[in-house]
Design a protein around this nucleic acid. Structure first.
Lengths: 150, 150
DNA sequence: CCACTTTTACCCACTTTTACCCAAGAAAAG
DNA sequence: CTTTTCTTGGGTAAAAGTGGGTAAAAGTGG
């Protein structure tokens, strides 16, 4: 089931605060109060997790056998920059500078929520990403959706 | 079986509200009350789904393992901009700005319903699309329908 | 360890947008 | 011609979003 949906255009103020849109907040529900975690995504974007979900994911990563070099490298890469956040009274989060740089975020930001992911993109990067359809989209669509008309 | 049919010319008011024509509403039936989802189409138009149908479609995509890059890209491209909507008491929906831009919608809009799709086009884009059709249409028709006794 | 600068947290006030409601005009039905 | 349904428009209160002041906290250098 799809927890999060929507694409939200937001703008950082000059204190680097990012307001979480009300619609998204409602989707998050009570969990916001337990805090959020922001991390680098696997692509040039950031990912926002509710505390609980973060714990679940990081537990999985922690169960990897860290004596295996590849696992160790993955774990290190995975956790890089993960930062706990607490929204203020106006539901704004303060974006960590290093993460902003990673995603190329300056002012205009797109929050993109799908499945149980919440991604944060620099607007230009988002548009560039969306402009180019994945290579074999049609093939995948047919395979996954079984529709010919997509 | 074809659920929806019709081509409706509608106009947004200056609050960006779009009224769903009564005829279409009747085709949608009770489902409207459960809400709708609007999303970018694969052409320069928007697509409107009854909540239920949206869930059916998106469930499949949600089952993808998002740690696989190709899946992630597919899901992203698929969900882009999906936004839940609830018609107001006069059966009007508030069009999200980003989606309007995507489809080039300003005031005049064509709602085009066929199969179990409801597409929303900017009027000019719709006309352009329809104008360009006839050329390939004959060929396609022949290819697709030609072997039947139509 | 202290003085000073920068960053962050918290608060308040203002603007814009949205949801909700009501009603009148237009079109269709009887 | 009257009644009903459909459509359009707009007023308004509440919600969402924006901006900034300021004090506390954290960081920095001597």
């Amino acid at each position: 089931m799809s927890r999060f949906t929507g694409e939200y255009e937001v703008r950082l103020d000059d204190k680097n605060r990012l307001r979480l849109p009300a619609v998204l907040l409602r989707q998050l529900g009570e969990e916001v109060k337990l805090g959020l975690v922001i991390n680098r995504g696997f692509d040039k974007c950031l990912v926002l997790y509710p505390q609980k979900q973060w714990e679940k994911i990081s537990d999985e990563v922690n169960q990897l056998n860290l004596y295996v070099t590849a696992n160790r490298e993955f774990a290190r890469y995975f956790f890089r920059g993960a930062t706990p956040l607490e929204p203020d009274a106006s539901s704004r989060i303060l974006m960590p500078k290093t993460l902003m740089e990673y995603a190329g975020i300056q002012q205009d930001v797109i929050i993109y929520a799908y499945g149980d992911q919440i991604e944060i993109w620099a607007k230009e990067a988002y548009e560039r990403m969306m402009d180019s359809a994945p290579k074999d989209f049609a093939t995948l669509a047919e395979k996954i959706l079984g529709h010919k008309d997509v």
